[in-house]
Simulated assay, not measured.
Amino acid sequence: MRSRLLAALMSVIGLLAVSACGGPAPAPSKIKLGFSAWPGWLPWQVAEERGLFKVNGVDVELQYFDSYTDSLTALSTGAIDANSQTLNDTIASVGSGVQQTIVLVNDTSTGNDQIIARDGITSVTDLKGKKIAVEKGTVDHYLLLLALNRAKLHEGDVQLVSTLTDSAAAAFAAGHVDAVGAFAPHTTTALSRPGSSPVTSSAEFPTLIPDHLVVRTEMARLRPDLVQRLVNTWFETLAWIEHNPDEAIEIMARRAGVSPLAYRAYQPGTTFLTKQENQDAFGSRTLHYRAVQVADFMVDTGLLYQRPVMDELFDDQFVKAL
């Protein structure tokens, strides 16, 4: 689910490009929205197939990314206008100089990010000295560091094998490494290895891996009306899913490339936030406090060089207007 960008690879493309006549380009009339195969973001596929973007009067070009990392790059370089991504990945992007704004909390990860180990490894402490495949800099690398820290271990106490999340899950399933950090639906691949099981998951850190709708700051400034309609669509989609669960699961499972039965197993591991919970989180500065907490941990563990300025990271106007 979901990786941070290396600062050296960041490039920022401004939304206000200079036109041929020398003036600023017109404000965008639609939103290019990216998402990838995380259960908390697959409702966007439902919104597309059920025509809910059009119902809410917003022209959305929905783009699915097989690689979550590619979606982060696309938002940071201006190839898309909005993306669903984790808090820690957004902090990493902002820390490298990209202007991004969080306008919505989609969900929190409550079990669908996992560290899965082979038979005979039953705790995080048992990972000492073992080979662990993980996409370095990803949210599951972050989860691994959280778990190691709680077990009084450090990254140097394990052997990291850095690879993309889907390849990491496949390598573990094939028996090439002792453990893997992965998010659903890649956890299904990893758990196909006989005797494997999670030794920890995001359920043990239920507030530290929130997932957000993030837009380029220029988009929020130039077309707040479009962003508002996108936020409105999200909650209407959740309501539609609640009233049509079987059809919704068919749509999301198909996009994730798993069976509806497998997809149902992911449901407890992703907790969606309601309108009221979003309003409470933005209004109480809970999100800012959590961002500071996450950023400080990322600095302490080497995922960030320094904590970025985050005073304007969250824009509450859109959830307030719901």
Rank of each mutant, 00 (worst) to 15 (best):
Y305W: 04
M1T: 14
L222M: 01
V60H: 07
R285D: 15
D166T: 13
S67G: 12
E48N: 11
Y305H: 10
P260H: 02
A321M: 08
D140K: 12
N278V: 13
D113W: 11
L160H: 02
D81V: 05
L33V: 08
Y266H: 12
N106Y: 09
P39M: 03
T237A: 14
R254D: 12
A27P: 01
E277T: 10
V105F: 10
R229F: 00
M219D: 01
E48D: 14
T233E: 07
T200F: 08
D113N: 15
R4P: 12
G57K: 04
A173T: 06
S3L: 14
L72Q: 10
T77C: 11
S162H: 10
K128M: 00
G137E: 01
V319R: 06
P224R: 00
G257V: 06
T110P: 14
V258F: 11
N112I: 12
A220V: 00
T122L: 09
D66T: 11
G302S: 02
L322W: 04
A25I: 09
V292W: 04
G257S: 04
G269V: 11
V258H: 07
E135D: 14
T207Y: 09
R50I: 03
A82F: 03
Q267V: 12
S29A: 03
S96Y: 06
E218C: 01
L153Q: 07
A256W: 05
R216D: 01
A239S: 08
T301G: 01
K152H: 02
A253K: 05
M298G: 06
I31L: 03
L213M: 15
V227Q: 04
D157G: 08
R193V: 06
D211N: 15
Q279R: 09
Y68P: 14
R285F: 15
A17W: 04
G40T: 06
V231P: 05
G22K: 08
S93A: 02
H186S: 14
I13H: 04
A173Q: 13
S197E: 13
L226P: 00
H154P: 00
D315S: 02
Y64F: 15
R4Y: 06
L143I: 05
P198G: 08
T108M: 14
L304A: 07
E242Q: 04
K136T: 12
E135I: 14
N88P: 07
L222W: 01
Q63S: 14
H176I: 04
A92S: 04
Q99D: 05
A281K: 03
R223C: 00
W38F: 15
K136A: 12
Q63K: 15
A174P: 00
R193F: 10
E236S: 08
D59K: 08
L238V: 07
A168P: 14
S96K: 04
I132V: 12
S202I: 10
N83F: 03
D166E: 14
E204M: 13
S196H: 14
D246P: 03
